[in-house]
Design a binder for these strands. Sequence first.
DNA 1: GCAGAAAGTGGACACCATGTCCGGATGTCG
DNA 2: CGACATCCGGACATGGTGTCCACTTTCTGC
Lengths: 223, 223
Amino acid sequence: MATARTPAELPVLGDTPAGRGPLPRERADAARNRARVLAAAERVFARGDARQVTMDEIAREAGVGRATLYRRYPDPASIATALLDEHERRLQDRVLRGPAPLGPGAAPGERLAAFYAAMVELLERHLHLVLGAETGRARFAAGAYGFWRAHVRALLADAGTADPEVLVDSLLAPLAPEVYRHQRHDLGFPPERIAAGLGGLARRVLVSGVSGFSGECPPPTSA
Amino acid sequence: MATARTPAELPVLGDTPAGRGPLPRERADAARNRARVLAAAERVFARGDARQVTMDEIAREAGVGRATLYRRYPDPASIATALLDEHERRLQDRVLRGPAPLGPGAAPGERLAAFYAAMVELLERHLHLVLGAETGRARFAAGAYGFWRAHVRALLADAGTADPEVLVDSLLAPLAPEVYRHQRHDLGFPPERIAAGLGGLARRVLVSGVSGFSGECPPPTSA
DNA sequence: GCAGAAAGTGGACACCATGTCCGGATGTCG
DNA sequence: CGACATCCGGACATGGTGTCCACTTTCTGC
């Protein structure tokens, strides 16, 4: 009951929407502009409110026309997503194949705590991008959310938690970028403290030995 | 240690931004238009995507000029907030002075579970307004969030939870309207199931006898 | 009642971002 | 080196924003 294994067929992030497919080779100027655009977007998102970055602004910063942006990305959010892709993929790999407790092998509660810590790290480093990428409902449609959701749901199921399907979104909610921004910058808590709080939450919710102790606490049946 | 009491000096919602203050009386045409605007906004938010309701749309629906809207409300979100005010105030009153377990008197875990259930009820009934009112960071700046935050923090402190200050925002995160919308409409879960999941979470996190792991069971308070 | 003052109203305006189109420039391949 | 496909970016139409100001409605004091 203890070894949480993430199912193999988890949804993994696809290629970038640009899709440098196998078909025709990408032209040199196109590649140059793609790099320019991404670099410029990184700067633009970093300075100022990521939530109201405009295509115009990125185009100006990159020194290209707006139509060039629209050729590949429909909106600023998708550019932020493209920038995040690599980082999220790396983290997904650590979850799937890395060492415990983030990777397979540890108890579900410990794995969830480690996952929380890793996500806090990601948010700390790339908050501006996550804020830019996940405007409201887009968060749930994103490929990354599907992966995290499947992972945490598997941990919940492995720990024998009641109704993992409905609890999983509640446990992912504290990782919404707006929540982290509030805790981190409005309230001023250091990342370690936020991660520690979430870790405590994880261990309390996913008590794997729920019936293993002497005290016969009736499982909290929901009303 | 069990009786959770909410501090008396909780921040309570102020008057509506219109501020029908003591100063000059509100003119008849102004009152008439205010009612028109609110009724129209209710309709507009209810039909379609609350996140992209525009001042133009509300003005047209109300049959008034845009400048009339701008006189009182700076943006659509503040109109939605005004519409929510009454409902949230009523719920705040039940939390402060109503019967247990939502009001004072029950164990912290039970009170949090009841609070979750009440919020799910509010979200179910007025989701379109909450979605319209809380665009990203505005959620945390709103007066209502301050109230819920103080309440839940008091419950955490009363249960002896470690670092309530940092945990409280994580426990409020599942109530973000976007999260509820996803669970309710993308995934199709009924409100009762969502409330039950949150109730289980509440009882697990707020185990009042946190240090005594041997025999302490949460009191079997019936709902 | 009535006139004047104050408050309220809404059409008009300038600004900005969006998303698309097309003439021209730029690579790539034969 | 020339032809062709691809790509670029200025220009345009659209729609929302927020403000200004001339006009109308209501309230108050005489």
